[in-house]
Design a protein around this nucleic acid. Sequence first.
DNA 1: TCTGGGGTCCTAGGACCC
DNA 2: TCTGGGGTCCTAGGACCC
Length: 434
Amino acid sequence: MILALVDCNNFYASCEQLFDPRLRDRALVVLSNNDGCVVARSARAKEVGIPMGAPWHQLKDQARRHRVVALSSNYALYGDLSARVMQVLSGYSPQQEVYSIDECFLDLTGALPSPAACGRAMRSEVLRLVGLPVSVGLGPTKTLAKLANHFGKKRPEFEGVCPLHELPAAEQERLLAQVPASEVWGVGRRISQSLEGLGIRTALQLKKASPAWIRRQFSVTLERTVRELNSEPCLELMAGPARRRQILCSRSFGTLISELAPLEEAAAAFARRATEKLRDQKLLAGSVSTFLRTNPHREDHPQHFPSLCLPVQPTDDLRRITAAALNALRRIYRSGYAYQKTGVILTDLTPVERRQGDLFDDPVQLGRSQALMEAMEHINRSMGSGTVKLMAEGSDPRWAMKADNRTPRYTTRLDELPVAKAVSRKKISPYSGT
DNA sequence: TCTGGGGTCCTAGGACCC
DNA sequence: TCTGGGGTCCTAGGACCC
């Protein structure tokens, strides 16, 4: 079996550069929601030493020195470009697993003229048709394909495509010996620290460890990683999208909130967003949880992290889900805390077609509920999300996020098309953060 | 002042069953 | 005085991923 892992380079930053060529040679970063942390960096931003994942407010001086441009994240744009990349790649294999917004696995077993040639073709076609650079890693297991992708990206001699399985064994070992174990898929910060204590520092040392011993020391998960490094497949390619186990919607607020009323509005808004996702996937929720969180970084302030899960009769009715979410919120809320975040989680998900009835169900009410939900969706689809919503959401959200520097949704909004006016008159300035 | 959002899987331990 | 053996299910917490 030969698997490919195709991954877009600096995905969010590349999306922004695609629509504004003036950004191509700039140090550019894209920020997380609320303009909180750095979640993507252009090649130049990496060169000047902007770290991944760091809080933006700590980097402002460094950023000013290097004239770094910082943009708020624009998920409508990234989601649309992702779909185009995945579409192009799907033509190269009947078996594609879309693993995240910017990467997918493909089964290239038996690809002609060869998997490696196929990898090179994918790379040039995505660049030609979508305009985004990708890297390709090839190997007999997912973990090795991931590692090969790492080599394809970091080592210029591969020119973006690394067919690890074609290299002589000695050459493979030489490469693995040069990669820290923490770069291996499934080895995070905690495990790499523990491994180091046991004398395992490189991917090659991890590969040569005994699977049984690793299982005793850690868990079956890391045992699988070791086996995968030895070309023994333990992780299957997922055929379709896996069945969801939970649906979560949460946001940090633009400012801290202590009163119940604005928290209720936020929870109602997140319940709606979660219910939209639930209905898109034709699922019913059997439990609704709400959680609250104070700012964990303020160690000198009183902290409160409550949550409550309420069972409901399996439903996709926005009114019932919102009522349960607010009920839970009111029961966990305490005055006197400055809350930073709330969220709604739907669990115990079942497919709509397996709806379990109840002795006291009223089919007329169920029909009305469905008709109402469909009418709301129809209006919100054609006139914009949130055109029709429950009063519980309020109309002036105090919890709204910061997104001071979002670029236009070039590919999904007619009124934000990149016409001359929109692009050329807007001056690029380093992010001021005000 | 300012620190993301959305997921999955595994394990240990407790509750509960006969 | 002395208190079994063999299970399942659920949950919280911790690890990982992008």
